[in-house]
Amino acid sequence: MNVALCRADGIYQGGTNLAARWRVSRVTLDQLQAIEISVLWYTDGKGDQDLHVHHFERLDESQIQRTGLADEHRLTCELPATPLSYHGHLISVRWCIRMRLFLSDGREIVTEQPFYLAASSPSTLV
């Protein structure tokens, strides 16, 4: 599995579009039951973990058979203004694209591609 962001630095401003490409390899079509790809943020650190899914797509078995695995697929969504990425001593807010494969034998494979959500510049707010 591979998820690639459209920005090499991985820094996005709130209110802008996130674009990514993803591909599944080393897994055959008959091994897959579903693919989920989501854009989410979660907290890490002291206390309970919060998690919020901002964007979600799911391909079931029939959709996977139709689209196949040979080509790269695209993910696009508009990012919210908040919460901004934050890395503190007690708590962090982390953004990522999470891709989950559900295999026919009951196993799950998960990968994450982190990115950084920064404050919008004043010119993008006009």
Rank of each mutant, 00 (worst) to 15 (best):
88 G>R: 04
65 Q>A: 14
80 P>Y: 01
6 C>L: 01
118 A>D: 12
30 D>V: 00
64 I>S: 06
26 R>P: 00
102 F>A: 15
99 M>I: 06
126 V>T: 13
29 L>R: 11
44 D>E: 15
79 L>G: 04
1 M>K: 11
33 Q>K: 13
116 Y>D: 06
92 S>C: 11
76 T>K: 11
17 N>Y: 09
26 R>H: 15
22 W>P: 05
58 R>Q: 14
122 P>M: 04
88 G>T: 05
117 L>Y: 04
15 G>Q: 08
84 L>V: 09
19 A>N: 08
111 T>K: 07
119 A>T: 04
118 A>N: 07
83 P>F: 04
61 E>A: 14
13 Q>L: 03
92 S>A: 15
20 A>H: 09
73 H>E: 12
89 H>K: 13
72 E>K: 07
56 F>D: 12
8 A>P: 08
14 G>C: 00
111 T>G: 11
12 Y>I: 02
92 S>H: 12
16 T>Q: 08
77 C>E: 02
86 Y>R: 12
21 R>E: 10
11 I>P: 01
80 P>R: 02
35 I>L: 15
78 E>I: 08
73 H>Y: 10
73 H>R: 15
88 G>Q: 05
112 E>T: 14
57 E>K: 06
62 S>K: 13
60 D>H: 10
80 P>H: 00
32 L>F: 10
23 R>D: 02
83 P>K: 00
10 G>H: 03
33 Q>V: 08
71 D>L: 05
82 T>Q: 06
7 R>L: 11
4 A>D: 01
118 A>K: 11
52 H>K: 11
48 D>T: 12
20 A>S: 08
98 R>N: 00
6 C>Y: 06
98 R>F: 00
25 S>T: 04
95 W>D: 00
31 Q>P: 01
83 P>Y: 03
126 V>F: 13
2 N>K: 14
121 S>M: 05
18 L>V: 01
91 I>E: 12
4 A>W: 07
20 A>G: 02
1 M>N: 10
87 H>P: 00
118 A>V: 08
57 E>S: 13
53 V>R: 11
